[in-house]
Write a protein that binds this DNA or RNA. Structure first.
Lengths: 291, 291
DNA sequence: TAGTGGTCTAGACCACGTG
DNA sequence: ACGTGGTCTAGACCACTAT
């Protein structure tokens, strides 16, 4: 059970203790198209002193954050675009600029948006280098990180096998798209990926589209299919190359390879991709920072 | 060249525009022993309009953060202890509580301290589970993450080989401590570590001390040697087991192993440890989250 | 009851980027 | 000159923990 829409934790207005600032009428700004003045939403009920504090307490800025996230998800503000200024959002949601700021702070910390002083706050996109290398951690021993060439071997729809279905939180047999591809760096085959995508989100994805696309796959997904990868979780092991992998990666059978099993999530922590990668780590390494 | 002590970026007092709040006399609180009222430090010089903005601008809260970090580093507040309350720090540094709060926010984000509502802000320690598993990412396929038994093979002082010296930012031949050990999980040898520590920081570290110590090695380092690992950077590859590793880890020669080369840093981003680990990933995996 | 961190507001001023 | 995010302050109230 989620709770947002009707979970007013109290009745009266929130922090605006002094100026009676809660009349929900339209502000001076024209209400931007797709978001009619939200039914805000108080966080502190000045209940009688002995009343139990509201069980589903949520700070105002968290509620604002959820509203902004919803607008991101709905595509009201698209990747690369600027979102409304803090002042605008403050007046839209009828809260102070400081509260909006704290909400955006968290969204920025989660890399959903990026602030640029003097310019505005922008929806992040997989076209930016910074974002790209958050999801590609393979670094060459010599030289700068770069994006290799992608060679698509296969792209087809099929029914999800049990384990993939489990990871994607769908039913066995539900539609998925399977992609197999090889990434080549400086002429050397380095990564063999096997990818499963939620069928429902990727209608019309073909090998041609993948081949024509220059740039990160996630940028294509975000631009053409409205599915934005927000975070991912990886399980990493060392394995020995089987015959197929050995041939495609031009290494001897039995060579040690880095196995990276990734599950990627979009808004609301919904899994949309399972990716199994085999990396040749002779001239590259997987970079990770613990902090 | 570091800059802290004398790097006043301007002349007059900062934000306290209205109340003349800048006289640096001792506050009402007795100045805590080891930190005499710091020579604060203005951030905005209301220079003539055409003057170039100060080249080495640093926000007040960053300066406060640096001061707090210095106190952490000097051991004024030890791991596990509570640091002074926000109000106390505000009056010590002659800034508002909000500024201290922002400084502590960043320190908490970097895991140097942890806030606990109603109790205070505490210096983090490698004794806590949360911290332990930030630095041990090996998770069993079945069951909960846990700390295995450590078997120390060797602990000796020697002169740093060239590559280790380079990573530790010292000179070849400088003193280092080398440790070799095996970690065992559920009776299975799983990790073979080769560790180099800065000799200067670890005088008196012996195999006995390591063997007697129950718990994470970093907790020993922090408690007995005053050296706290703050962050680390890892390069991960897949390699084949050589004879030594194969024997110690009870796997066939040539088995794929995860190679993890870690450099760990203490305050001020100074490297203090190089650690080369070989992980058996048959029944464990290396967990990583991209976000 | 007292003290701590957590939330929220309001207003001032600054640095940055663009007209 | 203007609008954006960034910093700083001051004060109120809330939630949590301990005594």
């Amino acid at each position: 059970m989620s709770s947002l829409p009707t979970s007013l934790t109290g009745a009266t207005a929130p922090g605006a203790q002094e100026s009676g600032a809660a009349t929900p009428g339209a502000g001076t700004q024209p209400p931007p198209s797709s978001s009619p003045a939200q039914p805000l939403v108080s966080q502190t009920a000045p209940q009688a002193a002995n009343a139990v504090p509201s069980p589903t307490f949520s700070p105002l800025y968290q509620q604002i954050k959820a509203l902004i996230t919803r607008s991101l998800q709905s595509g009201e503000w698209k990747p690369g675009e600027m979102i409304p200024s803090e002042m605008e959002l403050a007046s839209r949601y009828k809260v102070s600029q400081g509260t909006v700021r704290k909400a955006i702070d968290e969204l920025a910390a989660e890399n959903l948006v990026a602030r640029r002083q003097g310019k505005g706050t922008f929806v992040t996109t997989h076209h930016e280098d910074v974002v790209k290398f958050r999801f590609l951690r393979l670094v060459p021993d010599e030289g700068e990180p770069h994006y290799g060439a992608s060679h698509v071997l296969e792209c087809k729809r099929l029914r999800a096998p049990a384990e993939i279905a489990r990871l994607l939180d769908i039913r066995t047999g539900d539609s998925v798209v399977q992609i197999r591809r090889v990434l080549t760096f400086s002429g050397e085959s380095t990564v063999l990926d096997e990818i499963w995508l939620l069928g429902a989100n990727f209608k019309g994805l073909t090998a041609e589209k993948l081949t024509e696309w220059k740039g990160p796959m996630y940028a294509l997904f975000e631009a053409e299919f409205g599915t934005r990868m927000i975070r991912a979780s990886e399980k990493i092991r060392a394995v020995a190359a089987d015959e197929t992998a050995a041939e495609l990666l031009s290494v001897p059978v039995g060579s040690p390879l880095l196995s990276v099993e990734r599950v990627s999530y979009t808004y609301g922590d919904r899994p949309v991709e399972v990716r199994r990668g085999l990396y040749v780590t002779a001239r590259h390494y997987y970079q990770n920072d613990l902090s």
